[in-house]
Deep mutational scan, measured.
Amino acid sequence: MLDDRARMEAAKKEKVEQILAEFQLQEEDLKKVMRRMQKEMDRGLRLETHEEASVKMLPTYVRSTPEGSEVGDFLSLDLGGTNFRVMLVKVGEGEEGQWSVKTKHQMYSIPEDAMTGTAEMLFDYISECISDFLDKHQMKHKKLPLGFTFSFPVRHEDIDKGILLNWTKGFKASGAEGNNVVGLLRDAIKRRGDFEMDVVAMVNDTVATMISCYYEDHQCEVGMIVGTGCNACYMEEMQNVELVEGDEGRMCVNTEWGAFGDSGELDEFLLEYDRLVDESSANPGQQLYEKLIGGKYMGELVRLVLLRLVDENLLFHGEASEQLRTRGAFETRFVSQVESDTGDRKQIYNILSTLGLRPSTTDCDIVRRACESVSTRAAHMCSAGLAGVINRMRESRSEDVMRITVGVDGSVYKLHPSFKERFHASVRRLTPSCEITFIESEEGSGRGAALVSAVACKKACMLGQ
């Protein structure tokens, strides 16, 4: 009897593995994704193909990295998701002549009506938060230079001027797309009239992360975010950046690689679950690469896999709870928690219980395998993109072996128990001629924006502006 049951459990697990095998990517698959990513990057950089390229390769006008001589107080704003952060950054000489960066910050959550109302409502709310922060720190009387981390696709015309191309991540505030974001912020500050600010720089969160990590390690020339969304930036040779005049030196390019796949480059790798996630998203047909990796989508992918296993009578005796059938019910943090389970399955059992399920031991094991399959594919897909960037940098610099540091931020990278190990191992397999160091950014977005502002202020002083 026991043997029969054991055989049935083994057969069930084997069927589960057959279904989950769809998520496995072979090294040849990853090399294919990497080569296609490089081709799209090239198209994004070139003037004649930029418009139709899915990977936009947006110039950021960040050319210099901090040298350690900029000092002063800077205000930093960070808008990239449902939370908005205001930070005071003091850049100065530390002990023994070292450079020191001290920060104080406060988080504000953005109400739904500000995210989806008008641009005026959104930026009025942001300036209200700045006003509140300055009151708390008794700094209303000071006109501070301000660095703005704005983590949406922007076409820069200068370091302090950028046109919002399109909202992502659930934002829909009308009247912002096609307009200068810094102008919208300046107008809102003017409307309030109770404080003055000098907006000197606007950067993407990947750029802010790279600059913040450069402060720790001067070989950091790539910034990457794996959180709600997924994106990367890197220092490109100016001669390859056709959208900006000049051939000397390097400029940081914001790849906006989340949109890779929007022209069909990933079609052969998309599964039924991916198509369902895409169809029910706020932007169907867009940001397809990001939807395979980002935390906004990972939990939902797992939920759809679990429903398939229920329908195949391989999980929960073929019956799903009402909660499990509800879109968004299986949160991405559950994926991390399930994979963090120590082996007694308590954590998995508790999560499934909150979803109205009474799982068996085998159910718990199957749910864990589903989570591992989805998150491992995410790590491997992400590795193909980064390997594409790094191999490109090595080739354009004609280096036999390139040493490089990548600064990384984002909740999936930082909080998932195995993502970074799987990701690092896969990147290294795909970049055999590179020695890569990964560092995690601390308060990256805010500190990085302030350091970019410090560079901009120093330049302005040198130019006598």
Rank of each mutant, 00 (worst) to 15 (best):
D3K: 03
D4Q: 04
D4R: 06
R5H: 14
E9W: 02
E9Q: 06
A10E: 15
A10Y: 06
A11M: 08
K12N: 01
V16L: 15
I19V: 14
L20W: 15
A21V: 15
Q24V: 14
L25M: 07
L25I: 08
Q26P: 06
E27V: 05
E27R: 02
D29K: 05
L30D: 05
L30A: 14
R36E: 03
M37V: 06
K39P: 00
E40I: 02
M41T: 06
R43Y: 03
R43L: 15
G44S: 03
G44Q: 02
L45C: 05
L47T: 10
H50V: 10
E52T: 14
S54W: 05
M57F: 02
M57I: 04
T65V: 15
G68P: 15
G68F: 13
G68N: 11
S69H: 13
S69L: 12
V71S: 07
D73H: 03
D78V: 14
D78P: 01
N83I: 09
F84V: 14
V86E: 05
M87N: 14
M87K: 12
L88C: 10
V91C: 15
E95L: 13
G97H: 14
Q98A: 14
S100E: 08
V101K: 10
H105W: 10
H105G: 06
Q106G: 08
M107G: 14
Y108R: 02
S109E: 15
P111V: 01
M115F: 12
M115G: 12
G117I: 01
E120Y: 15
E120P: 07
F123N: 04
D124Q: 06
Y125S: 09
Y125D: 02
I126G: 01
E128N: 01
C129H: 04
D135S: 11
K136Q: 05
H137A: 09
M139C: 10
H141R: 10
K142I: 11
K143L: 09
K143W: 07
P145E: 06
P145S: 11
F148G: 04
F150W: 13
F150C: 14
S151T: 07
F152W: 15
F152Q: 14
F152K: 15
V154H: 09
R155Q: 10
R155H: 07
D158S: 14
K161P: 04
I163E: 15
L165R: 11
W167N: 12
T168S: 11
K169S: 13
G170D: 11
G170I: 14
G170K: 12
G170N: 13
F171S: 11
F171N: 15
K172D: 06
K172Y: 06
A173Q: 12
A173T: 14
G178I: 07
V181W: 15
L184R: 06
D187T: 04
R192H: 11
R192A: 11
D194K: 11
F195N: 03
F195S: 08
F195H: 15
E196T: 09
E196R: 10
V200W: 14
A201S: 13
D205Q: 04
T206H: 03
V207L: 09
V207C: 07
A208L: 03
Y214H: 14
Y215P: 11
Y215H: 04
E216W: 01
D217A: 04
C220A: 15
C220K: 02
E221K: 03
E221D: 11
V226A: 02
G227T: 02
G227L: 02
G227C: 03
T228F: 09
A232C: 08
C233N: 00
M238E: 02
Q239M: 13
N240C: 09
N240S: 07
N240H: 04
E245G: 11
G246R: 04
D247G: 06
G249F: 02
G249I: 04
R250Q: 09
M251A: 02
V253R: 02
T255S: 11
G258L: 01
G258F: 03
F260C: 02
F260V: 02
G261V: 01
G261Y: 00
S263F: 12
S263P: 05
G264S: 07
G264V: 01
E265H: 01
F269W: 15
R275D: 15
L276E: 15
E279Y: 09
S280G: 13
S281Q: 05
S281I: 00
A282E: 06
N283P: 04
P284M: 06
L288T: 15
L288M: 15
L288R: 15
L288E: 05
Y289D: 00
E290T: 08
E290R: 05
K291N: 00
L292V: 15
L292T: 08
G295M: 02
K296F: 14
K296Y: 12
Y297I: 01
E300N: 00
L304H: 15
R308W: 02
V310C: 04
V310L: 05
D311L: 05
D311R: 04
E312A: 15
N313G: 10
L314I: 06
L315P: 01
L315I: 11
F316W: 03
H317M: 08
E319L: 11
S321T: 14
E322R: 10
R325D: 05
F330E: 01
E331G: 13
E331Q: 12
E331M: 05
V335G: 02
S336E: 11
Q337L: 12
Q337S: 11
V338K: 00
D341A: 04
T342D: 12
R345C: 14
K346N: 08
K346H: 13
I348P: 03
N350W: 06
N350G: 06
S353P: 04
L355N: 01
L357P: 03
S360E: 13
T361V: 05
T361D: 15
T361W: 14
T361M: 07
T362R: 07
T362K: 02
T362A: 14
D365T: 10
V367D: 02
R368F: 08
R369N: 08
R369H: 04
S373R: 09
S373V: 10
V374I: 13
V374S: 00
S375V: 07
R377V: 00
M381L: 10
C382V: 11
L386W: 02
A387R: 00
G388S: 11
I390T: 02
N391A: 13
N391Q: 07
R394E: 06
E395N: 00
E395R: 08
R397Y: 07
R397N: 13
S398V: 11
T405V: 08
T405P: 03
V406K: 01
G407E: 01
D409A: 10
D409N: 14
Y413T: 03
K414W: 02
S418Y: 03
S418R: 15
F419E: 00
K420V: 07
R422I: 10
R422K: 13
F423M: 08
H424K: 15
A425H: 05
S426K: 13
R428K: 15
L430G: 00
T431C: 15
S433A: 08
E435N: 09
F438Q: 00
E440K: 06
E442K: 12
S445K: 15
S445F: 14
G446R: 12
G448F: 10
A449D: 09
A449W: 13
L451Y: 07
V452L: 12
V455L: 15
C457R: 13
K458L: 05
K459S: 10
Q465S: 14
